[in-house]
């Protein structure tokens, strides 16, 4: 009788263990499924963030891109494609930092050049006639490498990022001053060529100075 009782207890214990084991197994399976889903989510999110940086058409500043890269890295994805995108973004940021440094290193505006250019702009804008403005334009163009010298106009600055108006040339810009009879921008940066002539001019809206 006792043996039967012992056997029954063992049987119950075995059943309980079996049930428990299969329960653990299904819980483990569920946990694995959840982990795989989270991993897939993180990979998708990382890719989305990284591609948004790589495909940016100039809306994001370098600082914003760096912040997004940190967000993507925080998702800890070891997916090879994500790692490759991270490498591409780091390379892009390195190039942007170098370009920004080069801009900072560019020759700062010589006060004399700034004054003479500023005076030229004001005189053209306030010229009494088109012919006198044309004379001033002709004279002013001699300060530049060519009439096609690039003129960039900053319309807004946020952090390390500048927003520009459509690039123009110095000849068009001087004629614009004549037509508008106003000089709405001031000198921001000047680059000169080997002969000391202005090879690139960067202006900034007076309203945001």
């Amino acid at each position: 009788m006792n043996n039967i009782k012992i056997c029954r207890n063992w049987l119950i214990l075995c059943v309980v263990c079996l049930v428990g084991f299969s329960g653990c197994k299904s819980q483990q399976k569920l946990a694995e499924e959840q982990a795989a889903e989270i991993r897939a989510e993180n990979i998708a999110k990382s890719k989305e963030i990284l591609l948004s940086i790589l495909n940016d058409n100039g809306q994001m500043s370098t600082a914003e891109k760096e912040k997004k890269l940190r967000q993507a890295k925080a998702l800890n994805s070891d997916d090879p494609e994500v790692q490759q995108l991270i490498a591409q973004v780091e390379e892009l940021l390195q190039r942007e930092r170098e370009a920004a440094q080069a801009t900072n290193d560019a020759v700062k505006v010589d006060p004399e050049v700034e004054r003479s250019l500023g005076d030229l702009f004001d005189e053209i804008a306030s010229a009494s006639s088109a012919s006198s403005a044309n004379g001033l334009i002709e004279e002013g163009l001699s300060m530049f490498s060519s009439p096609q010298t690039t003129v960039l106009i900053i319309i807004s600055q946020s952090g390390d990022m500048n927003d520009y108006d459509q690039p123009t040339t110095i000849e068009r810009y001087l004629n614009y001053l004549k037509d508008r009879k106003a000089s709405p921008n001031e000198i921001y940066q000047v680059k000169k060529d080997d002969s000391g002539k202005i090879s690139e001019l960067e202006l900034i809206k007076k309203s945001i100075r």
Partner: peptide, 13 residues
């Protein structure tokens, strides 16, 4: 839009 000027990428409107 973007354009390359003097090795720099310029974002303009």
């Amino acid at each position: 839009k973007q354009t390359q000027i003097g090795g720099r990428l310029i974002g303009f409107w």
